[in-house]
Design a binder for these strands. Structure first.
Lengths: 221, 221
DNA sequence: TCAAGGCCTTTTGTATACAAGAATGACAAT
DNA sequence: ATTGTCATTCTTGTATACAAAAGGCCTTGA
């Protein structure tokens, strides 16, 4: 197995991602290299490499000779991202419907059962985790490794927002029902129906989130 | 407008991309930092930043404490990438069919006309350029800026391979016919038909490329 | 008082210096 | 002869030093 050790800059990048996600750094904040260097007790070099990675994944924008700034997607961009996520996942499901293995199908059922348990226990974090697992199986069973990676990438980017919308009352239960529809379609080997189910499932997330946004900021521009 | 100046490391990243695409650096080659620094007459720092960017976009893999190595996608991964490209473009077309503006529709016709001229002139490079323009209009008219960016990103990654498959005899003419079908569907506002046309159009590219690959290496593993 | 220009500070971008890990080669022991 | 171990060396990862550019602030002139 090849070296699993990660560079300091990678750890820092992950840490910064977390700090952005949990709101420590808000949208528009400038990330000062020397401050961060002090905070992590390293020199500017690994900080810069970490920031470069974040810039590539779109979490920050890098304005030459000015600095890097946190860049949270606005409402419009978020809706766009959810739309793309929905389509990517729909493709995954369509492909998975015909390519899925028997074992993976049972895994899918298992994941869904765990989701149900989490719903009954009102365990939002648990539901979030098992839900991710459910979707990850679909990505994997698309039989397209590249598609799988792209799905995971976007899912990761949308993570904090997906999490938020789960807080909407009754959302978890509804989400479960949508899962059932997806599983049924996959089990029937009906690619188009699976795609539609998943697309709707993810689109709803985007809509819920949008609703949440507008209700939180009634007088925003 | 915000600063258009690019850092040296960005230029180097672009240059390295070119060197990888044109085969100067073959698959598996190690990219030595000091050699590259000498070649570009800079220090290791901007080289490292450039390599980091390439690693993020997947052109090279970075093995900690070992170095970075050129990583061209193998046949399997290429097919996977073309499949995803086809689906992304299909989504673009489906959305564009209902969202496209009148002006963009005429632009689409114009781009297609230019493609036709290039075909008649047997101008492969010209066709490639105008074809790109044609597709770019579709991305843009999806009305989803994020989707547009993702399409452009993947298109860029597949660029050298798309170019290759155009060399197949009669491919340009067939490609033109497929374009016509796409335009017709878009004009009719039929999203599903547009999506199917585009999906087929791009899938064919992948298949042609695959055929080209296997014919070039008849005894490969 | 306000505006314009220049200096100074602050911060990024690049170069170099240093440290630590990995590969390679030699040498010894079985 | 082969294998294992140690040391040397080469390369990457990190720290620091230096340069250049952007922004702020003060001064000065109208």
């Amino acid at each position: 197995m090849r070296s699993m050790e990660r560079k300091r800059s990678d750890c820092i990048a992950d840490a910064l991602e977390g700090l952005i996600f949990d709101g420590t750094f808000a949208d528009g904040d400038r990330l000062d290299e020397v401050q961060l260097a002090a905070r992590f007790s390293v020199s500017r070099t690994p900080i810069r490499e970490a920031l470069l990675r974040l810039a590539q994944s779109g979490l920050v924008t890098q304005i030459p000779r000015r600095g890097v700034f946190v860049r949270q997607p606005g409402p419009v961009e978020l809706i766009e991202m959810f739309e793309v996520m929905a389509e990517l996942e729909a493709v995954s499901a369509r492909l998975a419907a015909t390519r899925i293995s028997d074992k993976a199908l049972t895994d899918l059922h298992t994941a869904n059962d765990r989701c149900r348990l989490a719903v009954e226990a009102q365990d939002t974090d648990g539901y979030y985790r098992e839900n991710e697992q459910f979707h990850a199986i679909l990505y994997r069973q698309s039989g397209n490794g590249f598609l799988e990676q792209e799905c995971l990438r976007l899912q990761r980017r949308l993570q904090p927002f997906r999490r938020l919308q789960l807080r909407v009352r009754g959302r978890m239960k509804q989400s479960m029902l949508e899962h059932e529809a997806v599983v049924a379609a996959i089990e029937a080997g009906d690619g188009e129906r699976a795609a539609d189910s998943v697309r709707r499932h993810v689109s709803v997330q985007g809509e819920k989130f949008h609703h949440l946004l507008t209700s939180l900021r009634p007088a925003a521009e």
